[in-house]
Design a protein around this nucleic acid. Structure first.
Lengths: 342, 342
DNA sequence: TTGAAAGCGCTACCAT
DNA sequence: ATGGTAGCGCTTTCAA
């Protein structure tokens, strides 16, 4: 018997076929469409697979079948709690369905995102999922040209590349700020780390509320990546410039938590002296003391829906959902960190 | 001129070669080793690539070169802050080096991990990075058989599959508990959500300290996935059974944070009435109020080192690091949540 | 139901 | 420096 011809000496389908005394095609079919093969041969192949500990080479499979089984995902951050849930949802749907999820990090930079999209496209994913809707023109073009389903998530746009599932960040920001005004606060400040368009839209919502209530916008922001620590620092900055602030809208829950800790350090009572509003409804917000009022964003649900839509397009009859734009909305969660102005 | 023979009609290397009037091999070389090709031909190929918007098919490339450029990573959780930093480090090293990072989630279950490892191996990664050292025998076998570098991280073992980089979780747990005993506390409790071996080792460290100080171990734990909320619930449980507790060692910082909030709700002063010790040094711990004493684990550094070792083996002369076991240690960070027993 | 032949798109090897 | 040839391991015809 001749030595196997492939140098790396990994068990191949041919090895399995030889051992089972069938052709490679039959062995292949046993693995993919067992019902097409007679019970007898099937059993022989199955045991050969087991005996040789055969692992199919998905690379070769993908090349031959023109079906990579890959989903490309670009997120702006891996550490942000928001994207933890988001990625978890994608894994929960795609892995059981036999897809691999490839994740690339854009670090909240349009340039990095463009590059990440190009890199990803070189892997020939069967679909792409993006955070946000502000891809560069170049990236849009490549995406369109790739001819695969593309889902833009997290916010809404009138002009999606393909499919858009998210919520109005501006409106959510407005509702958050409005909650403070509705409680009677007139000196409402905002702190944020607006590295992405979504933070900026929430800021716009705040500004709109200010305009409506003829209140002066009071802002503190930074370009640094968002952390809990930053929440305290930005609050300090805000209070220095506007000591009369009694309502605070934070760009996200981490900032809100940091601001709350800063209040505790300074002896500022929450909500009696300062009402604090967060954004995103991270797990910690519900059980903080006081619990943090926030806006709940359906991030798990959003990713799950995105994944399911892709699954349907990819393996279904290839038909797309009726609506290209899906607004999942958001929910105001009033907790103990916000109270009536005195 | 004949129609292109490949059905899917994607631009291939042959198309580029034809357009540039060179052979496919030359076109391939321009993309991989430009210095081997004359300036003239290089220019022709380059413009053909641009004109046709050619995207190399990495699948075919990988199949032909037997070099997939993939790194397989299995983590037990995507939402845990610890693994956010960990994955970020891996991306930071591997992406610039031209590797893709494939991540699979084991959900803290040995069975899921075994399956994830098998799935990953089917992708023929060039190396694997695992969290923990307790892979199933089956998984160990497959990993060994794959013949690729395997790095086990987060904890230490005497019998690594290949390379092991981490720290002694038991010892770290001991130091954490010991810190409380050293402050004079004699009623020291522990709360944890021990779904992984590492939590259990930290618990062992705590038990060892208890034994040394002849103190009764006081435990509350749960099988549920770890959250901030749980920290409060477990503290409540602990206090019900052992009201005299004055020192609390929490399995991780999230639990510690939850416990601290629960104290605030109950009017228990930290650290005067209860000293709280966390684990992991998440970002929030440093700026909480009071700041949380904890054990700093070099998780970014650990993942970075793992990645760099792999890079060296993979593209270097294939030589492995001198030591197969690297203990990165940990650091006790004493902050304001722990104080002397009264 | 089974198998032989012909690629998928690329790169390694060996000539030139 | 350049190109021809022969695969990588699998799947997709199509014929038996």
């Amino acid at each position: 018997m001749a030595l196997p011809r492939n140098k790396s000496r990994r068990v191949t389908l041919d090895d399995v076929a030889t051992r089972a005394r069938v052709s490679a095609v039959t062995a292949s079919r046993v693995l993919r469409k067992p019902e097409m093969v007679s019970a007898d041969l099937r059993a022989r192949v199955d045991s050969a697979v087991r005996e040789l500990a055969y692992i199919p080479n998905q690379l070769a499979s993908a090349l031959a079948s023109n079906h990579t089984g890959r989903i490309g995902v670009i997120v702006p951050s891996l550490t942000n709690g928001v994207f933890g849930d988001y990625l978890r949802a994608l894994h929960d749907v795609f892995i059981p369905a036999g897809f691999q999820v490839l994740v690339l990090n854009s670090h909240y930079l349009a340039g990095r995102e463009e590059k990440a999209i190009a890199t990803m496209l070189g892997q020939f994913p069967e679909a792409m999922i993006l955070a946000g809707v502000d891809q560069t023109p170049q990236a849009r073009k490549s995406l369109l040209q790739a001819g695969i389903p593309v889902v833009q998530t997290m916010e809404m746009t009138d002009n999606p590349i393909d499919i858009n599932i998210g919520l109005s960040q501006r409106e959510a920001g407005y509702v958050a700020a409005r909650h403070l005004f509705d409680l009677g606060h007139r000196h409402v400040g905002q702190i944020s780390a607006p590295h992405d368009a979504r933070s900026r839209q929430r800021l716009e919502g705040y500004l709109q509320a200010c305009a409506e209530f003829q209140a002066t916008p009071m802002l503190a922001s930074t370009e640094e990546p968002c952390t809990v620590l930053l929440g305290g620092e930005l609050l300090t900055e805000l209070l220095t410039r506007w000591p009369k602030v009694t309502g605070l809208f934070c760009g996200n829950d981490n900032l809100a938590l940091g601001a709350m800790f800063e209040c505790q350090r300074r002896g500022i009572r929450v909500p009696q002296d300062l009402s604090i509003m967060g954004f995103n409804d991270l797990e910690v917000s519900a059980c903080a003391c006081p619990s943090i009022s926030t806006i709940a964003v359906p991030r798990y649900e959003m990713a799950r829906r995105a994944a399911e839509i892709i699954l349907e397009i990819t393996r279904g009859t290839g038909k797309r959902p009726k609506q290209r734009r899906i607004d999942l909305g958001f929910k105001l969660i009033a907790r103990d960190s916000t109270g009536r102005a005195s």
